[in-house]
């Protein structure tokens, strides 16, 4: 069914918080995501000409870099982009076959590749460019929020989180339930002012991004303006040298 599910009482709203302050742009999340998913739920992921001149393939994470602001206060911001598991996503409702669907119990947006006809309409409907078409298999693929990790009882409990979250060396990615106000993700969003991307499109994305902190550590002034021995010494030096 590609109609959106009614939110269930007590249901979860699973998603990610991505911290743009601490992301160092190392692409480890993208690599571990590819590694897990080429053997996981959506396996295999195309990977053509990987060591050649023009490698291409399907990736669920893409890490951009931007310059935010301008001038001396501007910042380099590394920006991981993946499916935001939106609450009202058109990628689901446009699907003619029922292959693209949103789970009622936890809100994860998935593709059933066994019935997908590969019409690509869902990728046109996603404003975030999160879906990538698998030309080898003729079906659409996308982030699964590592559904085969987070509920996987064969894994130790501590590892039941998405591959990108598990691997991030700067702990810039967090996974949890946004319906639980005490979860880590909910608290991070509240404390750090987590934002939704392109809210004006009306997709109500679940994932949130924590903006880079603006605070800078105030540097000590090099010269004190009035009085003090350092200042007097510098003044004398200045006088001598200016002669």
């Amino acid at each position: 069914m590609t109609s959106l599910p009614e939110p269930q009482p007590g249901g979860k709203k699973l998603g990610l918080v991505i911290d743009l302050d601490t992301c160092v742009g190392c692409h480890a999340c993208a690599v571990n995501c590819k590694e897990w998913n080429t053997g996981g739920h959506h396996a295999p992921l195309p990977d053509h000409n990987p060591y050649g001149k023009e490698p291409h393939g399907v990736w669920f994470n893409r890490i951009h870099s931007y310059e935010a602001g301008c001038g001396s206060t501007s910042k380099t911001v590394n920006f991981p982009r993946s499916c935001l598991h939106c609450e009202t996503p058109q990628c689901v409702t446009v699907c003619p076959t029922g292959a693209s669907y949103k789970r009622a119990e936890d809100g994860i947006v998935l593709v059933n590749t066994d019935i997908c006809i590969g019409c690509k309409l869902c990728s046109w409907a996603c404003p975030y460019g999160a879906r990538e078409f698998d030309e080898d298999q003729g079906v659409m693929k996308k982030c699964t929020l590592c559904i085969d990790r987070i509920y996987n009882e064969a894994l130790p409990e501590a590892e039941r989180e998405p591959a990108c979250v598990a691997t991030c060396p700067s702990r810039a990615r967090h996974f949890g339930d946004f319906n639980d106000p005490d979860s880590k993700v909910s608290r991070l969003v509240a404390e750090r002012g987590g934002v939704a991307l392109m809210p004006e499109l009306g997709y109500a994305p679940v994932n949130r991004y924590l903006p880079p902190r603006k605070a800078t550590i105030p540097a000590k002034p090099l010269e004190r303006q009035h009085g003090g021995s350092v200042n007097a010494l510098l003044k004398m030096l200045d006088m001598v040298l200016s002669r």
């Binding site: 743009l20 742009g25 692409h27 993208a30 893409r62 890490i63 951009h64 870099s65 931007y66 310059e67 935010a68 602001g69 301008c70 501007s74 910042k75 380099t76 911001v77 920006f79 982009r81 934002v195 939704a196 991307l197 392109m198 991004y209 903006p211 880079p212 603006k214």
Partner: peptide, 16 residues
């Protein structure tokens, strides 16, 4: 699109 409205302008630097 990047959630960086509070910084004013945003310019692309490196592609993924």
């Amino acid at each position: 699109a990047t959630g960086l409205l509070s910084f004013g302008t945003v310019q692309p630097l490196d592609r993924p």
